[in-house]
């Protein structure tokens, strides 16, 4: 159509001054706390071992937190729990979403309602219920470290439901599930094989996005972890924030960096995925 070629009309080359004003205000609001945190994290003085002089600004705060075994330990624990959460979430939700689409579409409202419930149940309420069930006997899982981590993973998987299920379901909607399944079965593949070799690879982009979002959420999560008393990153950072001056700033910056990295991964996956599917999809 001719209309498709049409350029937006009367658009000033540099945009309206109002738009710039609002944009700059917004950007300042977003950027200033980051700058302030970085600045704060650099206020810690570095003592020169030779001259004994104190040097500011320095990276001393970063050195301190990265040498702090509890900080690094918390980070690693959070990372490990995030990975387990992602694995469980995927193993649970991909077959479920697949099964709902293919075999029991009538169950869709039920499954969707459950996966959206975490939007209505705040983490503090969820952990309240979990503690009341899993702290006292007969299900006193929270008495052991392993049991606590298991319940924590369970809670995080629930938190990931809304994002992960939507990502998986949207991913499934873009591929012709029935045909792929029938084709695989006609070649002699059973259900597990169909899921593993055909469905998972075709959902790669969607699954990775969901996975990284879950990673970002779990890495910084505080409420549930702190009430369960696990030694993850969130509660330890909070503790640092109450007791130390500059280390928490460094810790926050590290935390932001992790979230950023995870989110950038999502964006890059999104781009790569578009590039991969577009030529095939274009007529």
């Amino acid at each position: 159509m001719t209309a498709a070629v049409t350029a937006p009309r009367r658009r000033r080359r540099w945009g309206s001054p109002w738009a710039w004003l609002i944009f700059l205000l917004g950007v300042s609001y977003f950027v200033i706390p980051l700058i302030a945190t970085i600045e704060f994290s650099l206020r810690a003085a570095y003592k020169d071992p030779v001259t004994g002089e104190f040097i500011r600004p320095s990276l001393a705060a970063y050195e301190l937190v990265l040498k702090d075994p509890k900080f690094v330990g918390g980070l690693l624990t959070s990372f490990r729990i995030a990975l387990i959460t992602i694995a469980v979430s995927l193993l649970l939700l991909v077959p479920t979403a697949y099964w709902v689409r293919l075999k029991v579409p009538r169950a869709r409202p039920v499954v969707e309602l459950i996966t959206l419930m975490p939007f209505v149940i705040p983490p503090v309420v969820l952990v309240f219920g979990l503690i009341r069930i899993y702290a006292p006997p007969p299900l006193a899982f929270l008495n052991s470290t392993f049991g606590t981590e298991a319940v924590l993973v369970g809670a995080y998987v629930v938190l990931s439901f809304p994002y992960m299920y939507r990502a998986v379901d949207t991913g499934l909607s873009t591929i012709d599930l029935r045909t792929l399944t029938e084709a695989a079965q006609s070649l002699g593949a059973g259900w597990p094989r169909v899921l593993w070799s055909v469905i998972f690879p075709n959902l790669r982009g969607a699954l990775l996005s969901g996975a990284f979002l879950t990673l970002a959420i779990v890495m910084g999560e505080y409420t549930i972890a702190s009430f369960m008393g696990t030694k993850t990153f969130g509660p330890y950072l909070s503790l640092l924030g109450q007791n130390k001056a500059y280390e928490p700033a460094a810790g926050s910056i590290i935390s932001f960096a992790i979230t950023w990295a995870a989110m950038f991964a999502i964006v890059i996956i999104g781009r790569a995925n578009r590039g991969r599917t577009q030529p095939a999809g274009a007529p």
Partner: peptide, 17 residues
């Protein structure tokens, strides 16, 4: 046919272009 300029001409009469 599509892209022959007919719509653009019309839009110029309307004042959109």
């Amino acid at each position: 046919p599509s892209g022959c300029g007919k719509t653009t001409t019309l839009r110029m009469i309307a004042g959109f272009e």
